[in-house]
């Protein structure tokens, strides 16, 4: 059970990255390679706030939200908006991710930093397994965010505008949706969210400059399994990836962890090419 908790918490972290990918994908049909790096910056800001400056949690949360919001906003303006070709966004957001990796390394150094969890760091027992409070918090937080975003998408005008935009940009524009502003807003929102999540992810993964690279790919696997643009899909994808990774590492050996995740990914995609939660359209001419 300890293993299951660990796997679920890991899956929750991946799912949180995947949610960021999906929001950007829904709103601008682009893919932000640097999403995981934004979360990484959040963990470092959390470290600085909680450990170096010893600020209260509430202030640190605000600080992290503001800082990563700003980074995301700058990234959108500099590396996404001016790019004319969709495939070049791959390169520019990749550039942004490397830039963030490099800058965090320069500021905070290459050593992993321990981010304390503001709740409690004591191991507790739950359903016959050992689990850290932060792991429970991560799992709950992911579920809450997924539910909240799903409700937001269905029940509010803003959510409907976003979905409409994802369906057909031009039609949304004609309906009076300010597509560019909405896309920018959604992007900056993922930044703010990533900043907040830094407080929760940091205690689980440490704040380290290679965090972005290791989260980015798994986040992508979660998106691919759940389906592009599907927020509920990230939950299921996260559970699958987290558990497979934890179980394979434990029973097969650490070098099989990624290989197993890859095998699961390929099997799922072969059965459902566009993921578990997105239906394939019969092709039309």
């Amino acid at each position: 059970m300890t293993l299951i908790w660990g796997g679920l918490a890991l899956g929750a972290v991946y799912a949180l990255v995947a949610i960021g990918y999906n929001i950007v994908f829904i709103s601008s049909k682009t893919f932000n390679f640097a999403q995981a790096q934004l979360m990484m910056v959040g963990t470092f800001v959390a470290y600085t706030g909680l450990v170096t400056l010893r600020l209260p949690v509430f202030v640190v949360a605000l600080m992290a939200v503001a800082a990563v919001f700003l980074v995301a906003a700058i990234e959108e303006r500099v590396a996404i908006r001016p790019v004319k070709e969709p495939e070049a966004v791959l390169v520019t957001t990749l550039g942004a991710s490397m830039l963030l990796d490099g800058v965090t390394q320069l500021i905070w150094g290459p050593q992993p930093l321990t981010v304390p969890f503001f709740g409690s760091d004591d191991v507790m027992s739950l359903f016959g397994g050992q689990v850290y409070p932060v792991e429970i918090a991560l799992i709950l937080l992911t579920v809450v965010i997924v539910v909240a975003l799903s409700l937001l998408a269905r029940r509010t005008l803003l959510g409907l505008a976003l979905l409409g935009m994802a369906e057909d940009r031009e039609a949304a524009m004609l309906r009076g949706v300010n597509v560019r502003r909405l896309a920018f807003g959604a992007f900056a929102f993922t930044g703010a969210l990533a900043g907040l999540l830094g407080l929760f992810v940091g205690p689980k993964t440490f704040a380290v400059a290679t965090l972005g690279a290791s989260l980015a790919l798994k986040g992508f696997v979660v998106v691919a399994i759940g389906g592009f643009g599907s927020i509920p899909g990230t939950l299921v994808g996260g559970v699958i990836v987290g558990l497979v990774e934890a179980l394979a590492a434990r029973y097969l050996g650490s070098e099989y962890a990624n290989i197993s995740v890859f095998a699961v990914l390929v099997v799922i995609l072969m059965a459902r090419p566009s993921g578990l939660f997105v239906r394939t359209q019969e092709r039309t001419v």
């Binding site: 390169v91 490397m98 490099g102």
Partner: peptide, 21 residues
């Protein structure tokens, strides 16, 4: 070494933004 990532990052962003095709 320590500036390599920063340099590559800036380079990729500039290249992607400025060069079409």
């Amino acid at each position: 070494q320590e500036y390599a990532l920063v340099f590559t990052g800036v380079f990729l962003i500039a290249g992607g933004v400025l060069l079409k095709g």
